[in-house]
């Protein structure tokens, strides 16, 4: 098959793709336009991509101090990153091991355990806020100089988020591992590899696209989550970006400062977009192609 498309088809596909791109970009252009507006209007009245007298004032205000809390944007961002990376790492590390077991082994209780995983997967995080809140509230960590309440810390929020992310990681990775042909493992086993070597040297490298996708989705959840963190954290030093963004809407409910809010929203989205672009290489490369002939 040649890599060239006939021009007519190319143009048709381009028109389709452009239309979808326009639909996706429309609300984003709207936010960009609001964030540049110097008038800090409460309600926009016209559609302009670049409003008259566009300025970056809203951005500088947000970097200094997004809300009334004495916390800078950088501190908030650091908290969000720690939380998101921790949750993503924990869920794909534990998740891929369990997924491998479910995908490649036949054992007693396999079906029951899988059903229990998907049973928990069904549960929304809202549905576990109350018990996690009550239980983590009882754990006080006291190691020498380090002393904190588990519930009122990013560790507690991280645990709570991992409990909601792990079932999805297991399920999604299992779905992907199932699509990896077993011929490679058969070949390696005949060459004398034991199960752990099969996992580390054969299956895991082939699962990198799925690990990237799953880890990325867990990262997004951690980065944008606010229900748990909003319920758990009370110290402004622990607040996350998502919480502050919500804080900005809540604070001014009737007349949100749309320019500041839009600037903040775009700055929250930016690091996520960068991480995505970095990972895209792994997501795109189909590593199973050509391995089995």
């Amino acid at each position: 098959m040649s890599d060239r498309l006939p021009l007519g088809k190319q143009l048709l596909y381009q028109a389709l793709a452009l239309f979808i791109a326009f639909a996706v970009l429309f609300p984003i252009a709207w936010v960009v336009s609001l964030s540049l507006d110097p008038r800090d209007i409460s309600r926009p009245t016209e559609l302009n991509l670049i409003p008259p007298g566009a300025s970056l004032t809203a951005y500088t205000q947000v970097i200094k101090q997004p809300t009334n809390n004495p916390v800078s944007f950088a501190e908030l961002a650091f908290n969000s990153f720690r939380l998101a990376f921790g949750v993503a790492f924990a869920s794909i590390f534990v998740g891929v091991l369990a997924a491998y077991s479910f995908s490649r082994f036949e054992f007693k209780g396999r079906r029951a355990l899988m059903v229990s995983v998907i049973t928990v997967l069904m549960l929304p995080s809202v549905a576990t806020v109350a018990p996690l809140f009550v239980l983590l509230n009882r754990i006080n960590i006291d190691i020498g100089a380090i002393e904190f309440n588990m519930r009122n810390s990013l560790w507690g929020v991280g645990l709570a988020l991992t409990s909601t992310q792990l079932p999805f990681a297991i399920w999604n990775l299992k779905g992907y591992l199932d699509t990896i042909p077993k011929d490679l493992e058969e070949a390696a086993r005949i060459d004398g590899a034991d199960p752990n070597q099969l996992f580390v040297y054969v299956t895991l490298p082939l699962a990198i696209p799925a690990l990237a996708v799953t880890g990325f989705l867990a990262f997004l959840t951690g980065f944008t989550e606010f229900i748990m963190s909003w319920q758990f954290l009370s110290n402004p030093k622990d607040f996350t970006l998502a919480m502050s963004l919500w804080n900005m809407t809540g604070q001014f409910s009737g007349d949100t400062p749309w320019s500041k809010f839009s600037a903040m929203a775009l700055m929250v989205a930016l690091p996520v977009a960068v991480v995505y672009l970095v990972l895209q290489r792994y997501i795109v490369s189909g590593l199973t192609i050509g391995s089995v002939k």
């Binding site: 609300p27 709207w30 944008t224 606010f226 929203a265 989205a269 996520v272 977009a273 995505y276």
Partner: peptide, 18 residues
């Protein structure tokens, strides 16, 4: 690809308010 990913990249609370 970079454009189409944007809806998941943006926090849902931003999307909802916008």
């Amino acid at each position: 690809r970079a454009i189409y990913i944007l809806p998941i990249v943006l926090p849902t609370l931003v999307i909802a308010t916008v």
